[in-house]
Structures are given as structure tokens and as C-alpha cells.
């Protein structure tokens, strides 16, 4: 897929929560093709401590409005600066990067999309794509607390939504891997994105139950295009770049001790 360096315009900057903003970016030309699970390397202007671009998942692509959405978690100086952009500002993005999730021909029949924290971001666009192909995925979303569960209404438009919170303020109390749905229903395919311990727990569940599973990794990266070899993950083929060969990997390829 051809990659682009684009000067995008901020159509909207929504504060979803004290720690998250949703950036909706657009341009005059139609946006290029982007696949669910791919990401962008976004340049942060005006932060004297931020040198590298920030890799951020594609949260959603609204073709009617010609918008690409990025859910930005405010982690450090770079993401805070990025989150301060205003409507009409320019944001420079290199996209689309990485491979994206694998679509199964039958939609995985019963597909579970498990995500936690800002890892929920790519699942919305993926859920939409699955719904457009006529499938109805199940979303299992985890967060610390009720306020950290984001975009629930949008998720509900594409599938069944189940939630967990660590403090029990919404959904079932605990971690996603403790949710009762994992015992009650049988899934054929699991996709997951979130903190590494969560993904490892999901991968373990999938492996134990003989379910195909893809994980989306977020190793620290610099170039985003497979040139610097900083973001490597050990696989059955040795060290590979998460930015280029990933970020999505089938757990069978990874050397995780699960």
C-alpha cells in the first residue's frame, strides 16, 4: 500500500476524558485507503522535548466526512502537545503504516475483539469494517474505571459490547480476561490490542482454548517504516519490525511464554 506524508487539517478536537482526546482530521483531497489495525506516525510540533513522531492507531475512517480519527491518550509532553491542537490547525501525518488485522473469509464466524485502555482505538474501525462485511463482532472493552470506557455508543453500532472495569464502576469488575462471556460463549477468532500483560492473558486464553488470535503490538518505535529496526519483536523468523511486519501478529508467530 502506498504511504503518504499528509498535512491534515483538524476538523474537530474532542476531549473525551481528562486523559484522552479524539482528533478528527481531514483534507481537501479524498483520504487514502487505510486498513483497520494500521497506524500513522504523527509529527508533534512545538514541543521542545519531543523529537520523534508519535505512532497512533487509526481509530476510525469516516468516508462521508473524509475524516480520519485518532484517539490520543495523554501520556507525556508529546501527546499533550498534540492534544492541544485546535480546529483548523495542521497536523502532519505519515500513513497508512503497518499491516492491519487479517480478515477471515467467514468473518471468523464468532469474532471477539478484546481491548483495553487506548488499545480500544483500532477496534472501532475494525468493528465497522466487519459490520460492513455483514458480520457482527463482539467487543470486550476493559478500563480502569467507568470514565475510561470510551466511544461505547459507536462500538454498539457495530456489535455486542461487554465491558469490565478494575474498580467495578461499569460492567463486570476486574480484567477483561475475567469476564463471564469468555466462559459463556465460544469464539472462533480473537483480536486484541492493549497493555502487554492484558494481551498476553488474552493470548493465553486463546491458545488454551484453541482459538486463533491476533495481537496488535505497540513496541517503542522511531521510523515507522521498517528502516531503523528499533521496534523489533522476536518471532519464529527472528527479530522483525513491529512497524512494518506488524503491528498485528498471529500469536503463533510470537515467542511469548504463554
Amino acid at each position: 500500500m502506498k504511504k503518504y506524508i499528509l498535512d491534515l487539517t483538524v476538523a474537530e478536537n474532542l476531549s473525551l476524558h481528562e486523559n484522552y482526546v479524539l482528533l478528527k482530521l481531514t483534507q481537501a483531497e479524498p483520504l487514502p485507503e487505510m486498513l483497520p489495525g494500521q497506524f500513522a506516525e504523527i509529527r508533534v510540533d512545538g514541543s521542545c522535548t519531543t523529537f520523534l513522531r508519535r505512532p497512533i492507531s487509526i481509530n476510525f475512517v469516516d468516508r462521508e466526512k473524509n475524516e480520519v480519527w485518532f484517539l490520543v491518550q495523554l501520556v507525556g509532553d508529546g501527546t499533550r502537545k498534540l492534544a492541544s491542537v485546535k480546529k483548523g490547525d495542521t497536523v502532519n501525518a505519515v500513513l497508512p503504516l503497518g499491516n492491519g488485522f487479517t480478515f477471515l473469509p467467514d468473518g471468523g464466524k464468532k469474532t471477539l475483539l478484546v481491548s483495553g485502555g487506548v488499545g480500544t482505538a483500532p477496534m472501532l474501525y475494525f468493528g465497522k469494517a466487519l459490520a460492513e462485511k455483514g458480520f457482527r463482532p463482539t467487543f470486550l472493552l476493559g478500563a480502569r474505571s467507568k470514565n475510561d470506557l470510551l466511544q461505547l455508543e459507536q462500538f454498539a453500532a457495530y456489535g455486542d459490547v461487554y465491558t469490565t472495569t478494575e474498580d467495578g464502576s461499569a460492567g463486570e469488575k476486574g480484567y477483561v480476561t475475567m469476564h463471564s462471556i469468555l466462559q459463556q460463549q465460544k469464539f472462533d477468532m480473537i483480536y486484541t490490542c492493549g497493555p502487554k500483560p492484558m494481551m498476553m492473558a488474552v493470548a493465553k486464553y486463546a491458545k488454551t482454548n484453541g482459538i486463533e488470535c491476533e495481537v496488535s503490538l505497540e513496541n517503542t518505535m522511531a521510523c515507522g517504516v521498517g528502516a531503523c529496526l528499533c521496534c523489533v519483536e522476536k518471532t519464529d523468523e527472528g527479530h522483525v519490525c513491529v512497524c512494518k511486519e506488524g503491528p498485528v501478529f498471529n500469536i503463533k508467530k510470537l515467542l511469548w511464554q504463554i
Partner: peptide, 23 residues
């Protein structure tokens, strides 16, 4: 060469450190 284990990169003020190790 397999190179060094991950993590191999740290961002620094207006720069970065790498430890790829000639993969």
C-alpha cells in the same frame, strides 16, 4: 546478526538513543 534485544530505542531531548546492534 540478530542484533540486540528489545528495547532498542529511547527518545531524548531533540535526539534519540539506539541500540540496534547491527541486525
Amino acid at each position: 546478526r540478530e542484533g540486540n534485544p528489545y528495547p532498542r530505542m529511547a527518545e531524548t531531548p531533540m535526539g534519540m538513543l539506539n541500540a540496534v546492534g547491527l541486525q
